[in-house]
C-alpha cells in the first residue's frame, strides 16, 4: 500500500517534470520558428482577428461595467472621508495598475485561450498537423507561432482598451450621475497617475500575461490527447491554468514594480 502510493507519487513527479520540460522546449521552438510569423505577417494578422477583434466586445463591455462599479463603490467609500474629489485617481489607478491587465487577461484566457486550445487540439486530433508535417511544412512555424504573436500583440491593446473603457465608465457614474466636479475628476487623476510608474508598468504586465496565456493555450492544444475528451479536458485546463498564471504573475510583477513606492 505504502509502496504503491510512493510509486504513484514518483510517477506523477516524473510525468510533471517531463511535461514542464516538454513545455519549455515547445516555448523555445516556438520562438525559434517565429520567422514565418513576421515574414508572412498576413498569417499573424489573420490570427489577430480571431484572438483580438473577436475578444473586443466582451473586453469593452466588461471594462465599462467594472469602471462604473468602481465609480459607485469608490464614491460611496471616499465620501465618508470627504475625499470624493479623488474619485478619478481611485478609478484610474486601480484600472491601469491592476484591474485592466488582470481582468482583460482573465477574459482573454477564457475567450481566446480556450478557442486556441480547442482549435489546435482539433487540428491535431483530425491529423491536420500531421498532414502539414508530411507536406514539409512545420506546424510550429505555420500554425503555432503566428497565434502566439497575435496573442502577444493583442493582449496589451485589449488591456489598454479595458482600462480606457473603465475610466470612461467611472467618469459616467462619478461625473454625470453622481455629480463629482468634472475638472477635479480629471485633474486629480492626471496629477497622481504617473506615465512610467503606472501606465507603462500596466502595459508590461499585460504583455507578460499575453505571453503566458497564449503559450499555455497553444501548449495545451498541441499536447492534447487526440480524442474528444482529450480536447475538452485541455480546453478546461487552459482556462484554469492560465487564469491562475495571470493572478500569480500579477502578484510577482506587482511586488517587483511597486515595491519602491510604499
Amino acid at each position: 500500500m505504502l509502496k504503491q502510493s510512493i510509486e504513484s507519487l514518483g510517477n506523477r513527479t516524473i510525468q510533471g517534470v517531463w511535461r514542464i520540460g516538454f513545455a519549455a522546449r515547445f516555448f523555445v521552438a516556438m520562438l525559434l520558428h517565429s520567422g514565418t510569423a513576421f515574414r508572412r505577417f498576413g498569417l499573424t494578422i489573420r490570427e489577430m482577428y480571431f484572438t483580438g477583434v473577436l475578444s473586443l466586445i466582451i473586453i469593452l463591455v466588461s471594462g465599462l461595467f467594472v469602471g462604473m462599479v468602481l465609480g459607485l463603490q469608490g464614491y460611496e467609500t471616499q465620501q465618508r472621508f470627504g475625499s470624493e474629489s479623488a474619485l478619478g485617481t481611485l478609478v484610474a489607478l486601480s484600472l491601469v495598475r491592476e484591474l485592466g491587465p488582470v481582468l482583460a487577461g482573465l477574459l482573454f484566457a477564457s475567450r481566446a485561450g480556450s478557442a486556441i486550445t480547442a482549435e489546435i487540439g482539433l487540428m491535431k486530433a483530425t491529423e491536420q498537423l500531421s498532414a502539414m508535417e508530411m507536406m514539409a511544412v512545420d506546424p510550429i512555424a505555420r500554425v503555432v507561432a503566428p497565434r502566439f504573436w497575435a496573442g502577444v500583440i493583442s493582449m496589451p491593446l485589449l488591456a489598454a482598451l479595458f482600462s480606457a473603457m473603465g475610466i470612461l465608465g467611472g467618469y459616467l457614474v462619478g461625473v454625470l450621475l453622481i455629480g463629482v466636479d468634472v475638472g477635479t475628476f480629471w485633474s486629480q487623476m492626471k496629477s497622481s497617475v504617473d506615465f512610467e510608474q503606472d501606465i507603462l508598468n500596466g502595459v508590461i504586465k499585460s504583455v507578460v500575461f499575453g505571453v503566458a496565456i497564449t503559450t499555455i493555450a497553444l501548449f495545451e492544444g498541441y499536447d492534447a490527447p487526440p480524442t474528444a475528451e482529450g480536447v475538452s479536458g485541455a480546453t478546461t485546463r487552459t482556462v484554469v491554468t492560465s487564469s491562475l498564471a495571470v493572478l500569480a504573475l500579477d502578484f510577482v510583477l506587482t511586488a517587483f514594480m511597486f515595491r519602491g513606492l510604499n
Partner: peptide
C-alpha cells in the same frame, strides 16, 4: 525529402478553415 512524398490521411485531414481550392494550393 517530404516534398517528394504525398500522404493521404485516413479521414483526409483537410484544413477545415480554408476552402478546397486553398487546401490543394497549400503546398
Amino acid at each position: 525529402l517530404r516534398r517528394k512524398m504525398g500522404m493521404l490521411f485516413q479521414f483526409g485531414a483537410l484544413f477545415t478553415d480554408i476552402s478546397v481550392f486553398d487546401n490543394v494550393a497549400f503546398q
